[in-house]
Every structure is written in C-alpha cells, then in structure tokens.
Write a protein that binds this DNA or RNA. Structure first.
Length: 599
RNA sequence: GGUCCGGUAGCUCAGCUGGAUAGAGCACCAGCCUUCUAAGCUGGGGGUCAUUGGUUCGAAUCCAAUCCGGAUCACCA
C-alpha cells in the first residue's frame, strides 16, 4: 500500500478512536500533498469535521495530530495552519521506502486481476495514408493498452481495418483511369501514399465533372449525383459486393499496397496489434443479430421491409438497422463486430478509441446491444478524443490539407538532428548511434506532444510551428534520464542495481528539502498510474514524468552526488536517482517513448 | 432546435470527487557552464479562471441561466 493510502487509513482510524460516536464518512477525509511553502508532507483538511464534532479546527487538529504521532510509526511531528493539519512523515519511513523500492523494475504496477479487455485503435481506411489525426488515435490506444496491462489487466490490442466501401472504390476508379498501371515500385511511392494519391485525383476529377454539369445547366445536387465518375464508383462497389473477379483482384492488389505502407508506418512508430479485423470479413455479421432482435420483438419492420429500433424512451429517435433491400448499414456492422470481438476473446471490457464526432453513434450502439440483451454491450467503453485541427480548421484528405503521418515522423527526426547539431551534442557517437538517437528523440517528442493533452480536448496543431524540444516535452524527460545515467556511469552503479546494492545504507542525517521532494514524487507514482488507468488518460503520466524531471533538475543543480558531503548522502542520492530513472523509464515506456542513456 | 464537449496568462495547456496566495511550458526580460551532460538551473513581468446569480465556513472546481466555439442528430462509413 502506498504511504499516501496509509495516511488516509491512519487518519480514519484516529478519528474513530478519538470520536467513536461521530459518524465520519470516508469521503470526508481529504488528504493532500502539503504545499511546498509549508512544512510537512501530507495535509489533512480539518474543516469537514468541524461542524460534525462541534470543535474549532485548531483544537481538532491538535488532538488528531497528537494521536497520529503517538499511535502510528509514520509521523514525526505536525503543524496546524489555519485549518490544515500538516503531518511530517518520519525520515526513517522515507529511508525504508527507498530501500524497499529502488530496485523494483515493476514499481507502481498492480497485481494481475481476472479482467480481459480489448482496446481497438488505429482502425484506418485503406484509401489513404495515415495522417496526424490518426496518430493521436494510435498513440492513445497503444498507451492505454500498456497502462491497462501495467495495472493488472489482460489486454488484447485490436485493429479494425475498414477495407471496403465507396471510398476504396474511388481510389480504384481513379487509378484505373489515370494510373497507367503504376505500382508502388514503378512510382517510387509507399503503397498507401500511391493509393491516397489516386483518392485525391478522384475528387479532383469529380469536382471538375460536377462543375461541368452545373455549367451545362444542372442544379448542384443533381450534378453531384450524376457525375459519371461517381456513378462508376458506385457501380464498382456493386460489382465488389457481387464478387466480380476483376474488381475483387484490383481491390486486393491495391489494399495489399496500402497494408505494406501501413506496416512500414506502424513499424517506424513502434506500434503493434494482437488482432486485426477486416470489415470486408465482418460487415455482414450484424444481420443475424438484427434477425434475432426482430424475433425478440426489440426491433420492428416497416412496410418497405427496413428494420428499425425505437430509442424514443431513451431520449433519442428511431434508428435504422437494415435497409429495405436487406443490406446492412454502418451500425449493423458494428453490432456484429462487437459480438464477434466478445465471442472471440470472452471480453470483460471493450474499449473503442474513436474520435468524439462519433459520440452519438457509440451511444446508440451501446443502447441497441443493451436492449437486445447482448452481454457484449455491457463492457463497451468509448474512449472519445478530440480531433486534431489545423489553424485553418479540420484536415480534409479529399482536399489534401492533411498533415501526413510519415512526413511528420521524418520532420521530427530531422528537427531532433538539427537541435543536437546546434547544441554540439554529437561528439562521441557513431553515425549509427546518432540515427537511432534522433529516431528516439524525434518520435518521443511527437508521441508526447499528442499524449500530453487530455484526450477529450480537441487539439490545434500549427505545422508551421514545429514541435518544440524544450519545456513540457519528451526531450526534457529524456535529458533528465541521460543525466542520471551519466551519474551512474561515473559512480559505477548499474541502471538497475540489485536489492542488496545499498544494504549498508543507514539513515542518520536529516533529508534535505529537494531530496525529500524527489522521494515524495516517487511515492506518488503508483497513485498516478492507477488514476491514468481509471480514467484512460495517458496525459496524467506525461504531467507526472515532466514534474519528476523538473524536480530532478533542481535537485541535480543543488546536490552533487559524486561530491556528496559524505558516503551516506551519496548512497541516499544514488537510491533516489536510480529509482527516479527507473520510474521515468517505466512511465514513458507505457507511452511508447524510449529514454536514451546518452544524448 | 435537441443532445454532448469545450471556454483558465499573448500562445499551448495543468488544476475540476469544493480547501491554503490559481500553476507549468512557450514567448519576453535579467542572471548562472575551470565542479556528475546548459536539450539544464535561478529570478522577474504577465490572470475579472467567458458572464451573471445561487449553494457553502470556503467556488476555477458544484447548481442554474446566459454568451461564445466545436461535434452530432443520414437508407455515408
């Protein structure tokens, strides 16, 4: 148990012992970290009990403080400042905290529980390459997966590829018309970029045809419907659904190019999946569910044969589940896929990382499953995140205003190289080491940038202002880590020393404020990690790791390790920095960010 | 119009289960490298926490109303 939690329990026990007749609820006990400007480590807010106990805050504080010091082994003293009881934890407690945890590579993790959860993320369409918006989705999903694993869950990372539909046919038509049988090899392009290129071409052609029709006297709506290239795309989709061999072959070929391109991008970004679903294989699955819903009387049929669900009593409207011609719609597929996932893995929870524009869709999906009595609906959680926008508004792949994912990665790597060269940081590295380092720094900065903001907030990204490598960034944390590694190299202490490494350590001197600040931060890590998991929010780890690095930099500035005042101080500080480096690595690894030993 | 999300320093964001004088980073200004990596540290200026009212010992945080921005309410996916 964390010291923080122990303090809460101790306060609860103390109150019960002191005032056995008072009904003190757990929620009334508010324990916080003591603000740096006051002496003490943990603060108990006294106001909530004042009314109940009919006591002045200060009088209550004295009784509670005295009791805690006398009856627990945790606290050495206390101070009361205007209604706040500031408890000082004994130095010896901090000493054993360090000794017990400094060499624990799994510090902060939770024991395995019987809970299987799927996280679906990335989920790209195969008509265009990944862009900056996808990266937020991908990094979020990957990070949340890792965080859930670290907090004891069994995690299945899933990717649902949208490989069919009119958008794919658009790329195919344009390639047929304009491609001259170009392949990724002949065009010298990544496959996903090649296919994306023809998707843009399609829209160029389409717009031109619409303009032509309008010039010929058609109104806009009719023109958009009748543009020949659009009719061709729709015809191609019908052929695909009918299993036309030529269309099917082209579809397979072009999707194959896209997958090769995606694989390169995923690999560069360090992203993997345990399971890949393809919509072409799942899009018909929902129909059986709809049929059983009809039999159960949850759904109803209209005269034209279309199937609906009535969600009016939930404050929503009627929702179509199957077209009159019996073909499925978007939500039908999702119903089927939800059940498939559940049956495949016996899931307790199923997390969908999907942009917030689909909040309504996900709400409806859950409601329908619930009404149909499908157990797979219970564990569904929509991890909704805000879109990444440009200063000029949303990115539109049709209009080619997207910031491409591969380009962005390359740009960040270039930026990290420029920064390193500017700072004269390249000495003592081989070319190969430098290349690896720039990847680490560039990608780290990118991931951190996208993860440091609360997922539900939308982000505005200005590509003209490149991502900074100073301040609240991965680079800052990476740098703090390399400084620690440098100390450890000098002192011949391994990155992960054995439990017995500091067994001779004995605490006799008072712990200095910045040493204490480090220890207090380290003690918070399990609490922060648990909160990040509860809220599916990796940004909490970003903030935590940044603050720990900040505190370390101040500590580093004031307290020398190799020139510590004495051997005891040296050992204490070594334990602190060993553990700090370990916690930094642990938290950043969960976000997919690597911390180098030299930079 | 209904529903949901957001509005905190010039900019990007923390803080939101009510708690001490509202915090970071960037940008700006002034200092700090013969000492473990200056991609760093120290200090400074910069705020009507959108507005109004309410609840409370105490409100950026909770409630209500209003204003502004966004998303969504398809037989598209």
């Amino acid at each position: 148990m964390t010291l923080f939690a122990q303090t809460r329990l101790a306060v609860a026990a103390a109150l019960k012992a002191l005032y056995p007749d008072a009904e003190i609820k757990d929620t009334m006990i508010s324990v916080n970290l003591t603000k740096p400007e006051f002496t003490g480590d943990y603060t108990v807010v006294l106001f909530p009990f004042v009314k109940l106990l009919r006591m002045k805050p200060d009088a209550l504080g004295v009784q509670l403080g005295d009791y805690l010091v006398a009856n627990t082994d945790l606290f050495s003293s206390y101070a009361i400042v205007s209604g706040f009881l500031n408890m000082a934890v004994k130095d010896s407690v901090w000493g054993s905290f360090l000794l017990n945890n400094f060499s624990n590579a799994h510090y902060g993790e939770q024991v395995k529980k019987d809970n299987r959860v799927m996280v679906e993320y990335s989920s790209p369409n195969t008509n265009k390459p990944l862009h900056f918006g996808h990266m937020r989705n991908i990094f979020l999903g990957a990070a949340v997966s890792q965080i859930l694993k670290a907090t004891g869950n069994e995690v299945v990372k899933a990717n649902l590829i949208n490989d069919r539909g009119i958008h794919i046919c658009k790329s195919m038509i344009a390639w047929e018309k304009l491609g001259n049988n170009a392949t990724p090899e002949s065009a010298g392009m990544k496959g996903d970029h090649l296919v994306g290129h023809y998707y843009v071409k399609f829209n160029d052609l389409y717009k031109a045809q619409v303009a032509e029709l309008i010039a010929a006297g058609k109104d806009e709506k009719a023109a958009e419907k009748e543009a020949p290239i659009m009719l061709e795309a729709q015809e191609m989709l019908r052929k695909w659904e009918a299993g036309d061999p030529a269309v099917y072959l082209l579809w397979q070929t072009m999707n194959g190019w896209v997958y090769e391109g995606f694989d390169v991008s995923y690999k560069k970004m360090g992203i993997t999946f345990d399971k890949t679903y393809h919509e072409s294989e799942t899009y018909l699955l929902g129909k059986a569910l709809v049929q059983s819903g009809l039999e159960k009387g949850v759904l109803f049929k209209k005269e034209d044969g279309s199937v609906w669900i009535d969600l009016k009593d939930e404050g929503l409207d009627e929702k179509l589940l199957l077209r009159g011609d019996g073909t499925s719609v978007y939500i039908t597929q999702d119903l089927g896929t939800a059940k498939l996932k559940y049956d495949d893995f016996k899931l307790d929870q199923s997390i969908y990382v999907i942009a917030d524009e689909q909040n309504y869709h996900m709400q409806v999906l859950k409601l329908i499953l619930k009404k149909m009595g499908e157990p797979c609906g219970d564990g569904i959680h929509h991890l909704s995140y805000g879109m990444v926008e440009l200063p000029s508004g949303r990115m539109k792949s049709r209009e080619g205003t997207v910031v491409d994912a591969d380009d962005m990665v390359e740009e960040m790597i270039t930026l990290s190289r420029e920064q390193a060269e500017q700072n004269g940081k390249t000495a003592g590295f081989t070319e190969e080491e430098l290349g690896k380092l720039y990847d680490t720094v560039g990608l780290g900065a990118l991931k951190f940038y996208l993860l440091r903001v609360d997922p539900k907030k939308k982000m505005i990204f200005d590509p003209k202002e490149s991502i900074d490598l100073h301040g609240f960034t991965a680079t800052f944390i990476q740098y703090a880590h390399t400084r620690i590694c440098s100390i450890l190299r000098k002192e011949n202490v391994p990155l992960m020393p054995s439990v017995s490494h500091f067994q001779a350590f004995e605490l006799t001197e008072e712990i200095a404020p910045l040493e204490k600040a480090m220890i207090l931060h380290l003690e918070q890590y399990p609490t922060v990690l648990a909160a990040a998991a509860d809220e599916y929010n990796p940004s909490e780890l970003c903030i935590y790791a940044f603050q720990l690095s900040q505190t370390f930099n101040s500590f580093y500035d004031v307290h020398s390790i190799s020139k510590a005042e004495n051997e005891e101080k040296k050992q204490l500080r070594l334990m602190i920095v060993v553990m700090a480096a370990s916690v930094l690595r642990h938290s950043m690894n969960l976000l997919g960010i690597t911390l180098p030993e030299k930079m």
